[in-house]
Amino acid sequence: MRTIVVGTRQSALALTQTNQVVDELRELSRQHGIECDFEIRKIVTKGDRILDVMLSKVGGKGLFVKEIEQAMQDGEIDIAVHSMKDMPFELPEGLVIGAIPQRQDPRDVLITKGETSLDELPQGALVGTSSLRRACQLQHSRPDLRIQSVRGNIDSRMRKLETEGFDAIVLAAAGLHRIGWQDRINAYVPAELCVPAVGQGALCIESRADDEFVLNLLGKFQHEDTALAVRAERSFLGRLEGGCQVPLGAYATVEHGTGGAQLTITAIVGSPDGAELLKETLRGGDPEALGREAADKLIARGADRILAEAYEKQGD
């Protein structure tokens, strides 16, 4: 019997979603007569070690995956469970995305002291987030808001609502849903108002490209509509070569008709202070082409200048 070693970060959320994936893979293997078992291995990443600096100051995408990917390349683990929004566009040689399971709620949410919408936050409210994407869009909608960086695991960030004087903390809905804390959500921020990060709400099961046993199992775990949507969003990301240092986002949905699958993508690029915010919404059938087209349209409107200025500011 093959033992599949699963790599994961050691946060409560990472372990929860990894255990959920393992439970589903174990059931799939049983249904299909695939003899295997699973072992979970915790790995500390750079993003987990540095908690007192805003993500945009620490480095680009890959902060939460590089050490795990190295362990996979070294043969210490066989697969890894990542949050898709943490994944860089380019994967290391020999590694592939083996499966994208069904997406959770992709929206952002507010944890507040009682307010039930963004509009209800008091004038000049102090809002905590580690994401430039969120800060950009929230300040574009509410220029009066004061945005301050907040890092740490979900529980520690929520505690800072009381201990550090925040009026609201902004988090991803998916994480709270996965750990069963839906009742702590005060308000969901509509995706039209705050476009999610690329891949937000989706998981990525990464594996070695030459491990046919594992890829056969993971192929049965793929959720095709989620995979189509994420392919469009990641194509947008790849065209802009974006990361955590700049405010960009993309969210795609899939509909099925007589002509096959049709995707709608909404993509944004903005300045960190929210003064500029470019947005495009497009429809098409080819996910990669659609993502690139959304990026090209934003570039034609000045996204490349905004991104260059954002990167330059990060280097100061």
Score class of each variant (00 low, 15 high):
191 A>C: 13
169 I>G: 11
146 R>G: 00
173 A>L: 02
161 L>K: 04
155 D>W: 05
116 T>Q: 14
179 I>H: 03
164 E>Q: 13
154 I>H: 08
162 E>Y: 12
183 D>V: 03
161 L>C: 01
120 E>D: 14
193 L>P: 04
124 G>A: 01
134 R>C: 14
173 A>K: 14
181 W>K: 15
134 R>P: 01
118 L>Q: 06
169 I>D: 07
112 T>S: 13
117 S>Y: 10
133 R>G: 13
127 V>T: 06
168 A>M: 02
170 V>H: 10
181 W>N: 07
184 R>K: 15
165 G>F: 00
142 R>S: 06
162 E>W: 13
157 R>N: 09
194 C>D: 13
140 H>D: 05
145 L>A: 03
157 R>I: 08
140 H>V: 05
178 R>E: 14
172 A>E: 14
153 N>M: 04
150 V>C: 13
177 H>A: 12
172 A>N: 11
174 A>D: 12
192 E>F: 02
169 I>C: 12
172 A>R: 07
182 Q>L: 11
122 P>N: 00
161 L>I: 01
117 S>T: 11
146 R>L: 05
163 T>K: 05
141 S>H: 10
176 L>M: 15
191 A>G: 04
184 R>F: 09
125 A>R: 01
156 S>K: 14
133 R>K: 13
112 T>L: 06
168 A>Q: 06
134 R>K: 12
162 E>K: 15
173 A>R: 13
130 S>Q: 11
162 E>H: 12
136 C>H: 02
113 K>Q: 11
159 R>K: 13
172 A>F: 07
141 S>L: 14
161 L>S: 02
112 T>I: 07
152 G>E: 10
113 K>D: 00
143 P>G: 08
174 A>F: 07
122 P>L: 00
144 D>Y: 03
195 V>H: 04
185 I>W: 08
151 R>P: 01
178 R>Q: 15
150 V>Q: 08
194 C>W: 02
182 Q>I: 09
122 P>S: 00
166 F>Q: 04
160 K>G: 03
114 G>W: 09
180 G>N: 01
136 C>M: 04
125 A>Y: 01
160 K>I: 03
159 R>M: 12
190 P>E: 07
143 P>M: 06
180 G>R: 02
156 S>V: 00
149 S>L: 01
127 V>K: 05
148 Q>N: 04
160 K>Q: 15
136 C>E: 03
